[in-house]
Design a protein around this nucleic acid. Structure first.
Length: 580
RNA sequence: GCACCCAUAGCUCAGCUGGAUAGAGCGCUGCCCUCCGAAGGCAGAGGUCGCAGGUUCGAAUCCUGCUGGGUGCGCCA
């Protein structure tokens, strides 16, 4: 139930009637007609820009259209008043019962309140994290994991059919390095001293992999040439790393639907097939790239390579798909992987990348545009860095000094819920500060705490009511006489609740889950303000002597709790029943 | 050199894909509270939305050009 959509539909009906009556030319495009909350509550409950938007295409003055529209809207029982204001805004006042109905709707729908069919069942693939399987996830991966997962939740809530997917980069040189690093730990497990050469992965997490390799292979590969063990060690170690990464993700509450392997694309003809498709469009050719201007690499020499004509789809230069030694570049399997996603029938593709991969956005979009003949839009969300702080002081990370922060560390220090919420307090393309102390602070300026506190307060008052012998289940509360919720302060809170379904659609359309966190902060603020007013005005407290009045007020409290739960569920955060 | 992202109150940031007098928290100033409806409350001051143009009824929002910051730029992923 989205009250704004309901009123917009009413506005469109009236406009339709005006077209039929000849007051407006037929066939006007209504797409830009919006019904929104007014900036200033004094203006009314809702405002529409219909008259201003339609003035030009209909060749009439905005105020004239507004007057006529106001007359028709006023005939509807739901509209108390419709007033023309400013350049042609139409300010609407709604019957209070409409607002009160929002409370009942929230109680009836529970955590599904605000669900939308905006996505109309379109299938969307959200690829995120995709960290190299060479070690545990570190704090840099956390934000991408949270943003991707929350975005997936948000889209699912808004009517998309969502697949969460992780692309395992297990086909490149870095997994050979992993195998060699594991080999040294394997030697170590046999009592030899490991030689962790420059460029190998020095992390302690490989020690147990070495032990496991010893159990698996005994001493068979000791002092044997690399060709004999490399492939086996690589497979073994990457499998171990992926198990670790799955555990890390689970600790954050992230559950992938699909793990896609880069390695699985090799030797199966998939890369060739994807490139063939591009070749058929004349987008693959042999050529020599110009060196980048202004920053020519030291060892630059022109070489002929197999190139993808990405410039024909908006890229700045064409991109190599084959290395000079004839092997594929990383881009080639990436193309094949996205071709695979297209073939699996997704309507929308989303990739969540670290901001340092920003340079690949255009070429990836070019590849998908070419492969899908423009049918499948690819959206790439770049996630900026997280700056760590401890007590307001920047927290330097160093593998060497042992101050390297893993995802595990973060979750163990502050918990998955806090981690997730804080990672969503900024839009994905802005840098984020994460202070280990501040995120646990119990104060107004900690949004996580503030939202949880609001939910806990509601839970507390409901417990209190129940202890006093009241029935506080949703079905009973929904039957309360909600017309008694007529105080301006209560209506202000209800207005905020009514905005929830709208915020879901706005966030989903923009693919920006952080908006949900921001909305929850505002809703929590509204709840706390209302609660505090109860100190001075006892008549506003949720618990009253009159059982009927209490029931109505508790219904409002519970409806607020429902919306907070629904919002937190999208962020993957468990609402708090009490603060301790 | 080129591309992408960012620039909004003293600080940290929101800002509905173009709407009305640009918002919140912190900090600052003033008032109130010490009642377990608790881990404070209320109010106020504070802005040339980086700069300059453009598009239009209307721009923080869209376009162009600058300035400043971040990221990246063939055979690493």
């Amino acid at each position: 139930m989205n009250l704004f959509n309901e009123i917009r539909a009413l506005v469109l009906d009236c406009l339709q009637a005006m077209m039929e009556a000849g007051e407006l030319p037929a066939g006007l495009d209504m797409a830009a007609v919006a019904v929104e909350p007014p900036r200033d509550v004094a203006h009314g409950d809702m405002a529409t820009n219909a008259a201003m938007v339609l003035a030009r295409p209909s060749g009439r003055k905005p105020r004239e259209i507004a007057e006529a529209l106001a007359g028709r809207l006023g005939d509807d029982a739901r509209i108390l008043s419709a007033e023309v204001a400013g350049p042609g805004f139409l300010n609407l006042r709604l019957a209070p019962s409409l607002w009160q109905g929002v409370v009942a709707a929230a109680l009836a729908a529970g955590r599904d309140f605000g669900r939308s069919d905006l996505g109309a069942g379109r299938r969307v693939n959200v690829e995120f994290v995709s960290a190299n399987p060479t070690g545990p996830m570190h704090v840099g991966h956390v934000r991408g994991a949270v943003v991707g997962d929350a975005l997936a939740c948000l889209l699912a809530f808004a009517g998309w059919q969502v697949t969460r997917e992780y692309y395992i980069n297990d086909g490149g040189a870095q997994v050979d390095v992993l195998a060699r690093s594991a080999y040294e730990r394997y030697r170590e497990a046999h009592g030899l001293s490991p030689e962790i050469a420059e460029g190998l992965y020095p992390g302690d997490y490989l020690i147990e992999v070495g032990e496991a390799l010893k159990v698996e292979f005994g001493d068979r590969f000791l002092n044997r040439p690399e060709e004999e063990w490399l492939a086996a060690f690589r497979d073994f170690a990457t499998e171990r790393m992926m198990a670790m990464i799955r555990d890390d993700l689970a600790a954050l509450g992230v559950q992938m639907d699909v793990y896609a392997s880069e390695k699985a694309l090799y030797g199966t003809g998939k890369i060739e097939a994807a490139l063939k498709r591009l070749r058929e469009q004349g987008l693959i050719y042999e050529g020599v790239l110009e060196p980048p201007k202004g920053k020519t690499p030291e060892d630059w020499e022109p070489r002929e390579q197999t190139l993808f004509r990405s410039t024909s789809h908006g890229d700045d230069v064409d991109r190599p798909v084959k290395k000079s030694d004839g092997g594929w570049t990383y881009f080639a399997p990436d193309i094949a992987y996205h071709w695979d996603k297209i073939e699996r029938g997704f309507d929308d593709l989303i990739d969540v990348f670290g901001a340092d991969h920003g340079g690949y956005v255009k070429r990836m979009k070019a590849a998908v545009a070419a492969l899908s003949a423009g049918r499948v839009p690819l959206e790439i969300k770049l996630v900026q860095l997280v700056k760590l702080y401890k007590d307001g002081v920047p927290f330097k990370m160093s593998k060497r000094a042992g101050t390297f922060v893993t995802l595990r560390d973060v979750v163990e220090m502050v918990g998955a819920d806090v981690t997730r919420f804080v990672m969503l307090t900024r839009k994905n393309d802005a840098p984020l500060d994460f202070d280990f102390d501040k995120v646990l602070e119990q104060s107004r300026d900690n949004p996580v705490w503030y939202v949880q506190y609001a939910h806990a307060r509601i839970a507390s008052v409901l417990r209190k009511a129940e202890a006093a012998g009241m029935a506080v289940d949703d079905a009973t509360l929904a039957r309360a006489d909600l017309a008694r919720l007529d105080h301006p302060a209560e209506l202000a809170l209800i207005r905020r609740l009514a905005d929830w379904p709208r915020q879901v659609e706005i966030a989903a359309r923009a693919q920006e889950p952080h908006r949900i966190a921001a909305y929850l902060g505002e809703l929590a603020s509204e709840l706390h303000t209302h609660w505090n007013r109860g100190n001075d005005e006892p008549g506003l407290r949720f618990l009253q002597d009159d059982a009927g009045v209490s029931a109505a007020k508790l219904a409002l409290a519970r409806a607020t709790g429902v919306v907070i739960s629904a919002g937190l569920a999208i962020l993957g955060v468990v609402p708090a029943e009490e603060m301790r």
